[in-house]
């Protein structure tokens, strides 16, 4: 039997909290610049004192734009097998000041509307090359 237990797409990028899923990043306490993934130092050229602290981002946002990936990209992209097109969006997270990219968790990718509300979820992208189901952050239209 192959082990197909779920794995995270990458380490330390998202977490399930008692309030639901959140993106794991950081924020500079001096200039309030958010970082996803987390940064060790503040990169804002107008900030004169880097003070980075861990931060959670999400779950609510607005879809800035969307595309549907109509052909299967090569690894390390993980997708369903057999391939079915998926949607990728750029999301402006409410209150966080962060624009973030993510796959859209939706049955019909063509139905997604720019400008609409979305919510962070953790969901499988498909099966990775090693047979494990790969979990990542995604955005679900509301």
């Amino acid at each position: 039997m192959t082990d197909s237990s779920p794995v995270h797409a990458a380490k330390d990028l998202f977490v399930e909290t008692s309030d639901g899923p959140r993106l794991l990043g950081s924020r500079c306490e001096t200039c309030r610049a958010p970082y996803f993934p987390s940064s060790e130092a503040c990169h804002n050229p107008d900030c004169d004192h880097s003070d980075i602290q861990p931060a959670h981002f999400g779950p609510h946002g607005t879809l800035w734009s969307v595309t549907v990936q109509n052909y299967p990209p090569p690894p390390p992209v993980v997708a369903s097998d057999p391939y079915s097109p998926y949607a990728v969006g750029l999301v402006d997270l409410e209150t966080d000041g962060l624009r973030v990219i993510g796959r859209l968790h939706v049955e019909d990718p063509a139905s997604v509307k720019v400008g609409g509300p979305v919510e962070l979820v953790l969901a499988p992208l498909g099966q990775g090359q090693d047979g494990h189901e790969v979990i990542s952050w995604q955005f679900e239209p509301r």
Partner: peptide, 18 residues
């Protein structure tokens, strides 16, 4: 690519759709 899956044309497509 690993966590989302957006090759170059998808990047341009996001700008275009916007």
């Amino acid at each position: 690519q690993r966590c989302v899956g957006l090759p170059g044309p998808g990047f341009w497509a996001l700008l275009t759709r916007q």
